[in-house]
Amino acid sequence: MDKVLDLYQFGILIFKTILVFAITLIHVAFTTYAERKIIGRAQARFGPKEVGPHGILQPLADFLKIFGKEDIIPQAAYKTVFKIAPVIVFAFTTVNLTVLPFEQGFILADLNIGVLFILASASLAVYGIILAGWASNSRYSFLGGLRSAAQVLSYEIALALSLASVVLMADSLKLNDIVLAQYNSVFGFYAIPQIIGFGVFVIAAFAETNRTPFDLPEAETELVAGYLTEYSAFRYALFFLGEYTAMYVMASLISLCYLGGWTVPKYVIALLPFLEKVPGIIWFLLKVYFFIFLYIWVRATFPRYRFDQLLNLGWKVLIPLGFVNLFITILIKKFSA
């Protein structure tokens, strides 16, 4: 009987895993469509219009096209590492989906160190980019890999410092506990009391995912496509999927750690009781979609930073602000205890 129960629970876990990954990949596909439409409108264009009604099937056409292309490996490349690099990026990015609670009780792996796990796996994903730059045996790719290493070294510290303050306030590294701690707090979320950390985290999240204005590892105007220069077909697609999945992971982390995840503040429910009937996952997705829109809006609005500006912002502004925010949080915890 126990074996049957274990098999049943294992089957449910497999089903949930497949469901989460399938939904994420669908989101990634249509985020590319939304991005092209929004940026098109920002630039007084229409964006995709030809494939399907209003271009809605453009992601499917792109998918078929990119997976139908020839997989070209440069003759001078270090072939084994060249092939493994995109898999490393994709694997260590998507594994973060397993520890994200989308709603109360809906989580694949409810780890006690969820925050630490995401920081660690996000750091490991960068090794794929560095290896891709080195293994391509191209100057453009190598420079892109070096930039990515320097960028992550700078902004990972700011990211960790801002999250350390959240962990101190919630007294837990568990994402479920952080959400519930926010729900039971005065404000209902940590974005207000942790306004400095919130700002630092949002900016660092753009750099962590190599998005504009911090897309220096790719930098088309200088490095052709940076670490992606020598990649094609499905290996290029793996990098692409990894980047957009990382955007959703960071947007989810912001929602969970600063905006209460799937919860709505108690005082809002008291004013508008009907909101309590809205499923938690709807609130969670709305918050995530807002930050995905922010990613796209910033890309359409801001120019790319120079590399020295990128490092100066990380080391001279964000990291000191992260330490200040952490110090203030420690003082508040000390004197309020």
Rank of each mutant, 00 (worst) to 15 (best):
S138E: 05
G105P: 00
K65G: 06
T263A: 02
T301F: 05
A85M: 04
R41L: 10
A29V: 05
T212K: 10
Y33V: 04
H27V: 12
A251Y: 09
E222G: 12
L119W: 10
P279G: 12
F234P: 04
M169E: 02
P53W: 13
R36N: 08
F30M: 11
I18M: 09
P320T: 01
V317F: 13
Y295D: 13
Y183W: 06
T93R: 14
V4L: 15
Q75L: 14
F46C: 14
I56D: 08
L159I: 09
F92T: 04
R211C: 12
A251V: 09
E35C: 06
F198Q: 12
P59Y: 10
G133N: 00
Q9D: 11
H27F: 15
R36Y: 03
I18V: 13
I39L: 14
Y140K: 02
L168R: 05
T31G: 13
S252E: 08
K316V: 00
R36D: 06
A150M: 02
E222N: 07
F234N: 14
I26P: 02
I66Y: 15
A205F: 05
E156I: 02
G145E: 08
C257T: 15
A300K: 03
Q75A: 15
I14T: 06
N312S: 11
A34C: 15
L108H: 01
A225H: 03
L97W: 06
L331K: 07
F63W: 10
V264N: 04
V95T: 13
A300G: 15
L216Y: 09
T301D: 05
F67H: 15
K277M: 06
P213T: 01
L131N: 07
L272H: 09
A337V: 11
L7N: 14
D215W: 07
L285G: 09
V81E: 08
R306P: 11
P101Y: 06
Y33L: 10
S141M: 07
V166C: 04
F307Y: 07
F293R: 01
L153C: 06
F302R: 07
M250G: 04
Y231I: 00
L286W: 10
I178C: 01
F21A: 12
Y78G: 13
N312M: 08
A85E: 04
Y190L: 05
A337Y: 12
P53S: 11
K37Y: 03
E230Q: 05
F187W: 12
L131G: 10
A270G: 10
S154P: 02
L275D: 06
A237L: 06
A158L: 11
E218D: 02
K3C: 03
A77K: 02
R139L: 09
L108F: 01
R45C: 11
Q309K: 01
G68F: 08
I292H: 05
S154F: 08
V288A: 06
L97S: 13
I12Q: 15
T98S: 15
A270S: 12
T212Y: 12
D62F: 03
F198S: 09
V317W: 14
A135C: 01
R304G: 03
F291H: 03
L223K: 05
W262S: 12
L173W: 09
P303S: 00
L259D: 03
Y305N: 10
S154R: 01
K79A: 13
S136H: 00
K266Q: 15
A191M: 10
I332P: 06
A29M: 08
